[in-house]
């Protein structure tokens, strides 16, 4: 199951509501970090970092992945 782009309710770095608060630092940090929280349900995801990519799995919303 691969996730399609949907509205992000939650910040995928800090897990707080995407609409409130300032997530500029989170966005900057994400250049060198994989996501940790599912943007749809804020569950912590199972994240595997690989030498040339990463994958993040939410039990409810499936896999996000970024090869490089």
């Amino acid at each position: 199951m691969t996730m399609t782009t949907e509205t992000a309710n939650w910040c995928d770095r800090c897990g707080e509501a995407a609409a409130t608060g300032d997530h500029d630092a989170c966005r900057a940090a994400r250049a060198l970090e994989p996501p940790r929280y599912c943007p749809q349900c804020r569950r912590r995801m199972k994240v595997q970092v690989l030498p040339s990519g990463w994958s993040a799995v939410c039990v409810e919303h499936g896999t996000h992945a970024a090869p490089r």
């Binding site: 970092v49 030498p51 990463w54 490089r68």
Partner: peptide, 13 residues
């Protein structure tokens, strides 16, 4: 170390 680390990402190799 090239590429990513264990839980964080690095520069592209």
């Amino acid at each position: 170390i090239v590429g990513n680390y264990l839980t964080t990402l690095g520069r592209p190799a």
